[in-house]
Amino acid sequence: MATLRTPVDPHDHTQGDPNAPCTLVEYGDYQCLHCARAYPIVKRAQEHFGDRLLFVYRNFPLTRSHPLAESAAEAAEFAATQGKFWEMHDLLFENQDRLGPDLYQQLATQLGLDPAALVDALDSGQFLDHIRAEFMGGVRSGVNGTPTFFINGERHDGPFDYPALVGAINAALANS
């Protein structure tokens, strides 16, 4: 059974109560169709579980199959530096069919961020080491495609439709 080897820490992007009895970690790729399909399912699960669920998103861009996944991850990390990670994360998935520099600048403006600073940040590649480290941490934990979920540190190997995901989280809550 694959287990999460990189514990959730203060550098992670999280939503929910840090002391929640269940932690759901997603390794995702903004250009992956399956991740876009998972996005509203995770949101619904977060609403359902409320304070009982901490959600963590980590980057796992499969750049050879998804050439825009890495730049999208950089745009989200840029937004994170100004406290807008989740807003950017959501908008990227909601506009997955338009990923690219024009969209990133448009979303930056929409979120009240400086689009020129975003362009500079992407040009400098300043977030790439972090994204790559997250990717390799995922590989060492057994991430095997996108999205890969870990529920309380255990890789979730089944389907991730809403009933399956909620069922797996309920099982983890029953064990915690």
């Binding site: 050879r64 199959s65 990717f135 095997n144």
Partner: peptide, 16 residues
Amino acid sequence: PVCGDQMGVYNEILPE
């Protein structure tokens, strides 16, 4: 589908 993902991940980490 599973094989494609598996080989896709391996392809990505060939440098490792």
